[in-house]
Amino acid sequence: MNIHFRKMLKPEENVVEALNRWENDTKLVPLTRPNKDRVELESKRIITMEDLYQRLEFHEIYLIFVDDQLVGEMNYMVDPPHLFKRTEGTAWLGITIGESVGRGKGIGYQALSYLENEMKRNGLKRIELGVFEFNTTAQKLYQKLGYSEIGRVEAFTYYQDRMWADIRMEKLIK
């Protein structure tokens, strides 16, 4: 299994297709985006090339490949307004392993390690992320990588007929 990463410099049709597939995958939606209620949780979203151009203005986006198959994407933005702890030079991290073939094989660990090195190379000193309270698999991964909880945003997302918190975690880059 050959895992590699590539920074996305401009939108690509195949990436838009993959993002649309992942954005509307009923198993992924609860894990990747906050939803205020069942209607929003079950709603379909369409990502366009223009959406991806706009996203590239504020995010550094990296694609995750296993062999030659696109299996996920990861990204970060610097000092966004939704940080829990406002510390200048903080990267807000996001990752999606969209294809099932890429899950449960340590790819997320390798991808995040790679992205942390990219952030360090770009002079960032701190990383913050949010992970939904029910997503214990991701929480364990982040803890394994050295992230620690710094707070919670209660009643943040709807899933399984109730509201759940968003756990905010941080890691200092050394």
Score class of each variant (00 low, 15 high):
residue 1 M to S: 11
residue 2 N to I: 14
residue 4 H to E: 02
residue 4 H to P: 02
residue 7 K to W: 09
residue 8 M to C: 12
residue 8 M to T: 11
residue 9 L to M: 15
residue 10 K to Y: 14
residue 11 P to D: 05
residue 12 E to T: 10
residue 14 N to I: 11
residue 14 N to W: 08
residue 14 N to C: 08
residue 15 V to R: 05
residue 16 V to F: 10
residue 17 E to A: 14
residue 18 A to E: 04
residue 20 N to A: 12
residue 24 N to L: 09
residue 25 D to V: 08
residue 26 T to R: 09
residue 27 K to E: 10
residue 28 L to Y: 05
residue 30 P to K: 12
residue 31 L to P: 01
residue 31 L to W: 09
residue 33 R to C: 15
residue 34 P to C: 08
residue 34 P to N: 09
residue 39 V to I: 14
residue 43 S to W: 11
residue 44 K to G: 12
residue 45 R to A: 09
residue 45 R to F: 07
residue 45 R to T: 11
residue 45 R to I: 11
residue 50 E to M: 11
residue 52 L to F: 12
residue 55 R to A: 14
residue 55 R to E: 12
residue 63 L to C: 06
residue 64 I to N: 01
residue 66 V to I: 15
residue 66 V to R: 10
residue 67 D to R: 05
residue 68 D to N: 08
residue 73 E to Q: 07
residue 74 M to L: 12
residue 75 N to M: 13
residue 78 V to G: 00
residue 80 P to K: 02
residue 80 P to T: 07
residue 81 P to V: 14
residue 82 H to W: 15
residue 83 L to H: 03
residue 83 L to G: 03
residue 84 F to N: 03
residue 84 F to Y: 11
residue 86 R to M: 14
residue 88 E to L: 15
residue 90 T to A: 07
residue 91 A to C: 06
residue 93 L to R: 03
residue 93 L to M: 15
residue 94 G to T: 03
residue 95 I to L: 12
residue 98 G to E: 04
residue 100 S to K: 11
residue 102 G to M: 07
residue 102 G to T: 03
residue 104 G to V: 11
residue 107 I to F: 15
residue 108 G to Y: 09
residue 109 Y to P: 00
residue 113 S to G: 09
residue 114 Y to L: 00
residue 114 Y to W: 03
residue 115 L to H: 01
residue 115 L to E: 01
residue 116 E to V: 07
residue 119 M to P: 00
residue 119 M to G: 00
residue 120 K to Q: 06
residue 120 K to A: 09
residue 121 R to K: 09
residue 122 N to S: 05
residue 123 G to I: 03
residue 125 K to G: 10
residue 126 R to C: 08
residue 127 I to D: 00
residue 127 I to G: 03
residue 128 E to R: 05
residue 130 G to Q: 05
residue 131 V to D: 02
residue 132 F to S: 09
residue 133 E to N: 13
residue 138 A to H: 04
residue 139 Q to L: 11
residue 141 L to W: 01
residue 143 Q to E: 13
residue 143 Q to N: 08
residue 144 K to W: 04
residue 144 K to H: 10
residue 147 Y to K: 00
residue 150 I to D: 00
residue 150 I to E: 01
residue 151 G to M: 06
residue 153 V to Y: 02
residue 153 V to S: 08
residue 154 E to N: 08
residue 156 F to W: 09
residue 156 F to E: 07
residue 158 Y to A: 07
residue 158 Y to E: 05
residue 159 Y to I: 12
residue 160 Q to Y: 13
residue 160 Q to S: 12
residue 161 D to L: 14
residue 161 D to A: 15
residue 162 R to M: 14
residue 163 M to K: 13
residue 163 M to P: 03
residue 163 M to A: 11
residue 165 A to M: 13
residue 166 D to S: 12
residue 167 I to F: 06
residue 167 I to N: 02
residue 168 R to A: 12
residue 171 K to F: 03
residue 172 L to G: 07
residue 172 L to S: 10
